[in-house]
Amino acid sequence: MARILTKDFSGIELSYIMIIISFIAFNIVAFVKNLINGTVGSFLAPLGNIDFVLAILYLGVLSSLCTSLLTNYILSKIQASKMSVFSNLGTIISILAGALILGEKLYSYHIIGSILIVAGVLGTNFLDSK
């Protein structure tokens, strides 16, 4: 659907709409959950925690916005089947961010898995039968 829409809308416009719809949907779900649990008063309480706010900024700006912009841009240039393989690189980015930003340990299975992901992405896109 995004590939079709990139003919009429820019990647930024599509990303903006996608993020707004996600923001509304997830907040409705969270609010209803708080309503059911009787904790509506604490709905905004996490915003008082700086670690939570930083995590939301990281996830919202770096992960979601950048990924959305790049995805919509790529869809305007290549086939969706080839682009979807690139989404697997998000796992590698998460591993690296955890190691570099959060100081998490890298284990051999992280490295082996990352190599397999990169091999899959390269194989899918460059070893095409055409």
Rank of each mutant, 00 (worst) to 15 (best):
A2M: 07
R3N: 05
I4Q: 08
K7L: 08
D8R: 15
D8G: 14
F9G: 03
F9T: 06
S10L: 02
Y16M: 07
I19R: 00
I20G: 02
I21F: 08
I21S: 10
S22D: 01
S22F: 00
S22Q: 02
F26M: 13
I28K: 03
A30Q: 07
F31S: 06
F31Y: 15
V32D: 00
N34W: 05
L35W: 09
I36V: 15
G38T: 02
T39A: 08
T39D: 11
S42K: 13
S42H: 12
S42L: 13
L44C: 11
L44K: 10
P46V: 14
L47S: 13
I50K: 10
D51S: 14
V53I: 13
L54D: 04
L54W: 14
A55P: 02
A55F: 14
I56Q: 08
I56H: 03
L57H: 06
L57M: 13
Y58D: 01
G60S: 11
V61K: 06
L65K: 01
T67A: 15
T67Q: 09
S68N: 13
S68M: 12
L69W: 04
L69D: 04
T71D: 03
Y73V: 00
S76P: 03
S76F: 01
S76K: 14
S76T: 10
Q79I: 06
S81D: 09
S81Q: 10
K82M: 08
S84V: 13
S84G: 09
F86M: 01
L89C: 02
L89S: 07
G90F: 01
T91Y: 08
I92S: 01
I93R: 02
I93K: 04
I93Q: 04
S94A: 12
L96K: 00
L96V: 03
G98C: 09
I101P: 13
I101V: 15
L102Y: 12
G103Y: 02
E104S: 10
K105T: 15
K105M: 13
L106R: 03
Y107W: 09
Y107L: 07
Y109M: 12
Y109T: 10
I115H: 06
L116A: 11
I117H: 04
G120T: 08
G120Q: 08
G120V: 09
N125Q: 02
S129N: 06
K130I: 03
